[in-house]
Design a protein around this nucleic acid. Sequence first.
DNA 1: AATGAATGAGGCTTCATTCAT
DNA 2: CATGAATGAAGCCTCATTCAT
Lengths: 206, 206, 206, 206
Amino acid sequence: MASKPPTTPRKNASQERSRATVDALIEATARILVREGFEKTSTNRIAEVAGVSVGSLYQYFPGKEALVAAVIHRHQEEIMAIVRTTLREIADMPIEKAVRRLVSVAIETHRINPKLQRVLAEQIPRAGKLDSEAFIREVHSLVRAYFEKHCKELRKIDLDIATFICVSTIEAVAHNVVLNQAEVLPEKMVKVLVEETTRMVVGYLR
Amino acid sequence: MASKPPTTPRKNASQERSRATVDALIEATARILVREGFEKTSTNRIAEVAGVSVGSLYQYFPGKEALVAAVIHRHQEEIMAIVRTTLREIADMPIEKAVRRLVSVAIETHRINPKLQRVLAEQIPRAGKLDSEAFIREVHSLVRAYFEKHCKELRKIDLDIATFICVSTIEAVAHNVVLNQAEVLPEKMVKVLVEETTRMVVGYLR
Amino acid sequence: MASKPPTTPRKNASQERSRATVDALIEATARILVREGFEKTSTNRIAEVAGVSVGSLYQYFPGKEALVAAVIHRHQEEIMAIVRTTLREIADMPIEKAVRRLVSVAIETHRINPKLQRVLAEQIPRAGKLDSEAFIREVHSLVRAYFEKHCKELRKIDLDIATFICVSTIEAVAHNVVLNQAEVLPEKMVKVLVEETTRMVVGYLR
Amino acid sequence: MASKPPTTPRKNASQERSRATVDALIEATARILVREGFEKTSTNRIAEVAGVSVGSLYQYFPGKEALVAAVIHRHQEEIMAIVRTTLREIADMPIEKAVRRLVSVAIETHRINPKLQRVLAEQIPRAGKLDSEAFIREVHSLVRAYFEKHCKELRKIDLDIATFICVSTIEAVAHNVVLNQAEVLPEKMVKVLVEETTRMVVGYLR
DNA sequence: AATGAATGAGGCTTCATTCAT
DNA sequence: CATGAATGAAGCCTCATTCAT
């Protein structure tokens, strides 16, 4: 049963030196993922870049997967923090303003570290599924809560379906704007896209 | 050495055999990707499953990447064939009917081989980027052509932007319906989602 | 369950080159065990001494244990061949002559490769238990068959117990003569020990 | 720093603590050897099981070998204590009674901790050879002394040879009874084996 | 003394690729 | 062309040991 090494950290690194080592390892992993790609991300290389020995790596992580998982986790936490803040900010806004803000923020979050984003997108199916599901669920529940609160502004509509469609749409546009259209997209275009996406979503909701 | 004149052209025979070998190799690669995952997809294993020797594999493909690329290519051709057919079918339909059909087809194509889809999604950024870009460009241009033809049904709108948003949206919904909501999504729900997505997109376009 | 690599060969090495490689690997393992000890017996070293690459080693054996097992097996076969021959030779001899021969042969077999013997003795509990049990069982059944055939020369006695005690005794004396008393035991002493052991065993049996 | 005069001598206290640590380490080593096998017996694991840090381990022992050697030593001392006591007990007994007792005790000592026995048997050639030789020599000299004292009961015989053969035999029977015949040997059988072995040895000696 | 984080040599194993047959 | 044995670089991981605190 337990043939594969787990993806959870080995120690709870309470001491200071430990903590620094753990951080260095996660940071190194993220850097290598971005700069050299997943294939090059070996435990020896991670240790080297982190400035520690392989032994230390294995003292805190059961293997490469666990490190990638930690990077994913850290990244998702970063994004979730923004999402939570945004949802709080828009809580009382009317839907048009709220949706516009959501679309903008979605694009902004995708711009935080597009390369890491892209590499992680490749790896999530493998290493971060559980984490990702929780992540997705939280996003959905926050958005749904907003819709619920503002249901008077909406036409009669199943909130779960509306949430599903809107989140998918906004995420997809943001993803494609940042990752597929590369970085050569003029700022003006982005503004237009934000407006258009907002228009579509809002038009759909009410 | 070859003193006896062959009745079936030597070349044809060997061409056929080559073709069969190549197909077997691609098929084996796809199967292993789906059934055993990318990590287990080694050239030796591919050759074994294809029923040929590793040597033969290297006679037809320069390496593992080429095989994965071939699988991606084959898969995308399969999908493109459907997309092209669909666009031809809807060419003269009014946008609502057309969009509804597009959404349905998008979901259908994602259902062709979700596991392969998922594994390839992980690998495309690495092995199939070029192919994928061509793929995306063709989809966009086909959809844009449809919009152009039916621009009288549309409000005043930048066709590139509309295409970008609509394709992103439809693709995202289809992707999430199939891959994230797993196969536990009741058929009825799918129909509703098709309707809702159609409503959003059509509402946006006109 | 299948966490540990098995100790059985991977391929049945029917082809000639394969066979040579397999032999070289087993031979190398035996040599290293004898000359450098178990601790130094690493897969890389074995491959090196065998004059092949590690890759080849793993083509035929799933790991170090399997190689040690193969050495044990080969060694036991060698000894079993002698034991079988001896039992056939003594089949019609009276017990005194027969026992004397058995004791002599036991000492001889222990002298075949004392160092290997010693190293294997360390490792048998780990890697060769199954093999060893079969080995012991065969020895017992051969000796018991002799006793059965010659039961008229024996006093009334449980043959299984007699076999157990006699085999244990002869084996122990031979083992200690060769391995513990080192090689500094004068030949004359050995002859005396053979006589004395024979006397004890024969005296016990009749 | 040490301003308060201790009521219990500082040195004693620390000596006691040291002693406890040393014992804990040896005990832990023995336990791991028995429960997890030699391969799993690492210094880190030993320290962990002993409840001390690796650093402390190295404060008391120069390395792993020393710990295994200590376990062997302790175990042999345990057995030697029994052997010495037994030889003292049988000092004045006639040989038949004495031999019977020796055989029984040999089996008993092998039963003390068969698993440890077995693991140590694997390791002794490596780590405990010196110790073992002293052990064997002492056993021989004690037994020889008994024979010398009782030589009137014996036929004319070289005492060294008699000792060698008898000790080998008794040890071998006890070893095989306990380790090879596993624990599935009915008690009745053991009694018979004790009797038979005694018969053989005594028959040989007089 | 005790601690335990850190080290890194070295063992194990896989797999893309080559090449003699 | 096909075969599959052979290769060996490169990755994974453990563990005896050290050393700063």
